[in-house]
Design a protein around this nucleic acid. Structure first.
Length: 300
DNA sequence: AACCAGGCTGCGC
DNA sequence: GCGCAGCATGGT
């Protein structure tokens, strides 16, 4: 292996790459990456530079191979940071497992999902668009819409004749015709929302830096929900998946409610008091708990 | 063939 | 401030 195009990241405790791959490859057609031969391959764009990377485990390290793009010490450092953020490698999740262990209804997750990390959508624009797309429709359909949008407005980077897609740039989507999105089966409103968010990002009225700089969660939620199409669920989902805010609970999420009922934590989906009581025991790990509860919905 | 899907907005009270 | 209808369309 050409060492100049390889990055090695030592594995943290309580990390299982196969669990993460399972999540990336669960039964949906996600256009942002491919999983094959126990490796994940995707395109990424960092500071204007585009790459195709492949991530695989080699003994006790995670090996990132640069398949396309310019390899320099600087670009390798950026890619390393990206992967660490994407797979949440720099977090010690032992305290979360201790909390799970205390609840007999959830303790099985410590072994059943051992090493699963909260997989991120590092690009806030993509995270917001994705959560808007996913509002109130089933995930199979949502992934179809995302693929149509990406293949129409995004950029493909070829590696060995295979296209790896980058999510559309805000400036490109900002100029999209609503009718084009309608023809992709977007609803009238979703088309408006996505284009509106693209215009906000393109016009610097919204950015990851802007949200990150805000002092507390309530502020971030307030700003995000001031944009049309972003309600509290979408705001929390985006904060959880892109900014890795540990406290975010996508309240009202049907999958979350289903999982809570499944585990006997609530009987009625509107029992918000019981939900609050339950999450209080996981303070600081709310987002991880939500992620693991979603995980519990899928068959092995 | 109903009912559901990783909700949001706008309105009426 | 809270509840609720309407939305828009594919999956199961």
């Amino acid at each position: 292996m050409n060492d100049a195009r390889t990055i090695r990241i030592s594995l943290p405790d309580l990390f299982d790459f196969k669990e993460c791959l399972w999540f990336l490859d669960r039964n949906f057609d996600d256009c942002m990456h491919r999983v094959a031969d126990e490796a994940a391959t995707r395109a990424i764009s960092i500071e204007g530079q585009q790459f195709v990377i492949r991530v695989a485990q080699r003994q006790r390290v995670l090996q990132v191979t640069l398949l396309e793009g310019v390899s320099t010490p600087a670009s390798k450092a950026l890619i390393r940071d990206y992967v660490i953020h994407w797979l949440d490698l720099d977090k010690d999740i032992a305290p979360f497992y201790q909390l799970l262990q205390k609840d007999e209804r959830l303790a099985y997750m410590c072994t059943g999902f051992k090493g699963l990390r909260l997989i991120a959508i590092p690009d806030l624009f993509e995270a917001i668009c994705w959560s808007i797309i996913g509002q109130q429709i089933n995930l199979t359909f949502a992934y179809k819409l995302k693929r149509r949008l990406t293949e129409a407005f995004g950029t493909a980077i070829l590696h060995e004749d295979t296209p790896y897609w980058l999510f559309p740039e805000p400036a490109v989507l900002a100029g999209a015709e609503k009718e084009v999105l309608r023809s992709m089966q977007f609803s009238e409103k979703k088309a408006e929302y996505v284009i509106g968010i693209a215009q906000a990002f393109a016009g610097q009225k919204l950015s990851k830096e802007l949200i990150t700089a805000l002092p507390d969660l309530a502020q971030k939620q307030k700003i995000l929900t001031s944009f049309r199409g972003i309600g509290i669920w979408t705001a929390n989902y985006a904060l959880m998946k892109s900014l890795k805010d540990p406290l975010c609970i996508p309240h009202g999420d049907v999958g979350l409610l289903k999982a809570l009922v499944n585990h006997g934590i609530i009987k009625e989906r509107n029992d918000t008091a019981a939900i609050d009581r339950f999450f209080k025991k996981f303070r600081g790990w709310e987002s991880y708990l939500v992620f693991y509860l979603w995980r519990s919905l899928a068959p092995r």
